[in-house]
Write a protein that binds this DNA or RNA. Structure first.
Lengths: 153, 153
DNA sequence: GCCGTTTAGTTGAGCCTTCAATCATCGCGG
DNA sequence: CCGCGATGATTGAAGGCTCAACTAAACGGC
């Protein structure tokens, strides 16, 4: 069966390319800043954030992967690295012998607290400062729609 | 001098997290599809696209890096890989002895042509199909604003 | 024409991510 | 209570990205 490709029209094309350029530039910039100022990539920062917000500053590996939008494998490697940095500690899960719990150490929390202001400032400068209040609203709507669309299917 | 951190308010927080989730999920999905169907990551696909659109299907390395939103180093590595795949060829630049010109081969063009329909379909399914016409307009506005803000500074 | 600076591009080391394979444990149907 | 598919997590190899260092050629002033 032959399926005709639904090509992008010029408007969609323009939208897609602008989105690619913008999101890549934004992420690259924030990643570079975080690496420079806090010595960790954005993905690792997010792991620490999620842990810091969890009750007891700890989460099961799977839940942490889900929360941080990471694959299990990636999280395993990442936590291994964070552990050698002394920012996270692994513990056995009391209710499931297969499970592991990642715990944010005091050192990790302190590192996060030190990195947060600079990073937030970066997000503000590179993202929010450029957009009007209306655009920020729109971006939230679009992002939430998309997030549901993508993680739902 | 002490600078107060301009923390994100709850709305901004929500926007930022949704954006992170959505853009990461979108890119991960498209990257995985492209890797599976065409044997290359999205960054490489984009290099081929830019080359295919250039006059003579060729571009100076620097211009290609700029067009593809890539660092010079990344592009060097990428083109090296694309060259061993037989999709791109390097030539001396006639007007600047320091320069190199990346040329899309027929093989590369054919590979791109084979990959494009599937990829475009993915972009449509994962992005445009989820958004209303109004949202698509908004996304273009936001992305273009952002792209200028980020690449201008 | 010469020297210092800028620009073009490459390279290698180190780190991060992905993929597939693996291992252990859990929980359910019979 | 046993077997087996599903689940939780890790591992290693392969490949991509970043950073800093480096080479070579062009440019600009004098």
């Amino acid at each position: 069966m032959v399926v005709m490709t639904r090509w992008l029209n010029p408007d969609e094309q323009r939208t897609w390319r602008a989105f690619l350029t913008a999101s890549r530039a934004l992420m690259d910039t924030l990643d570079r800043e975080l690496q420079r100022d806090a010595g960790m990539p954005h993905a690792y920062y997010e792991i620490l954030v999620r842990l810091s917000e969890a009750p007891g500053r700890q989460l099961r590996m799977s839940d942490l992967a889900e929360a941080a939008g990471s694959s299990r494998s990636r999280l395993s490697h990442a936590v291994a690295r964070l552990e050698t940095a002394g920012w996270v500690r692994r513990e056995e899960c009391p209710t499931d012998r297969r499970g592991q719990v990642a715990v944010l150490t005091d050192d990790g929390f302190a590192t996060l607290a030190a990195a947060a202001p600079g990073h937030v400032e970066g997000v503000r400068r590179h993202l929010f400062d450029a957009l009007s209040p209306a655009q920020i609203d729109q971006l939230r709507g679009i992002s939430e729609t998309l997030a549901e669309h993508l993680t739902g299917s």
